[in-house]
Design a protein around this nucleic acid. Sequence first.
DNA 1: TTTTGTGAACTAGTTCACAGCT
DNA 2: AGCTGTGAACTAGTTCACAAAA
Lengths: 222, 222
Amino acid sequence: MNLSNKRKPSNDQVSELTTNRLSVYLRCLNQLESAGVDTISSQALAEQFHLNAAQIRKDLAYFGEFGVRGVGYYVKDLKRHLRHILGLDRKLRVAVMGAGNLGLALADYPGFRREGFEIVALFDIADAKIGDESRGGVPILDIKELKRLVRKEHVDIVVIAVPAESAQPVLDQVVAAGVRAVLNFSPGTLKVPPGVRLRNVDLTVSLESLSFYLAQGDVGPD
Amino acid sequence: MNLSNKRKPSNDQVSELTTNRLSVYLRCLNQLESAGVDTISSQALAEQFHLNAAQIRKDLAYFGEFGVRGVGYYVKDLKRHLRHILGLDRKLRVAVMGAGNLGLALADYPGFRREGFEIVALFDIADAKIGDESRGGVPILDIKELKRLVRKEHVDIVVIAVPAESAQPVLDQVVAAGVRAVLNFSPGTLKVPPGVRLRNVDLTVSLESLSFYLAQGDVGPD
DNA sequence: TTTTGTGAACTAGTTCACAGCT
DNA sequence: AGCTGTGAACTAGTTCACAAAA
């Protein structure tokens, strides 16, 4: 349980694969907690959610000793630790660039709110949209207001859902406004300066990987 | 250039990382073609799009010898090969489960059509939505019609954009209807039988990985 | 000469297996 | 006994570096 005599790993040496799994573990724990489970072993967790027990232990052990030998992990306890590690113990503020279909859908996506993210605004350049709001009540602002709003509302993370051709210029504005974490839904390679984290969700690549599977599978398994 | 004396790799030994990159290469080639570029070396491709030249060559070499030594790759030619490998040389038919904000946005997502995917229908259980259509004109059908439509319209890929709690039952219906490739946007672990490919896009995990970065970064880089 | 295609070297990520704690 | 935390073994993925082809 002594976090203190364990060196806190400096952020970029933790693999993204590991941090992704931490999110997954947290979601599993939420379910277990709802189901009234108090403690769980890595073994049981792995079986229930199709994970690997050793990997769960390694991932967790990287951040501290959260388990109790002979017992397993206390669900509430581990949940609290994971929320802290993932930075979810404070409310994170998110803005969405682009009030098209996708931007509007993301702004109102219930999964974000449920995990404690707060969507503070949508941004667009179309006068027809500015001043309006999403169905869920997120206001649509002029992109010119971005810098001001980022400061005023302490925006932590920006989601980019603009057409491919404006993605890089919009990203540049986002970075200039002082945002250091960006989730991008536009296709193509974007460039960010060091110190800014860019994560891409590429819908086309995802669909094409399924297409590949079908194309190869159809060759026939003899 | 002789594909024939090279063993065609059976589908599951190609890493997903590789096939994802093939999609990326294809997109780069599209841009180059638009820009009027005829041939490109792996080196130039890597520099222009921030990739690794050796990796490009390895990825491509896995499927055949598409390059010409001393010259590079013919853009049109390689594009054609990649489209074939990725199964994009035939029109792929897609259905979307869930006519909520996200489902509607995905059904009308221009990137899908641009790459040759055809969105044939949305499915929902809400009577109020059934019979209606998306802004882009994709009809919303009763989920009871799924099996019939998959057969009639030869649906290749299904996108799942339903609430988390109905994701598994909906997926089961999709699989029962004979679909073998699924792109899932619901959070949580879903199970599919062997022979069905499931790809997950987990929006919460993506946002949380950014939160992690901010949380760790804020500890201060001394 | 230029640039591919590819074995070899390296790096990263996963899984095993067990010492040691409760 | 039961289960964690972790070095060691293994597997996968990337990058290097160069022989061979155009």
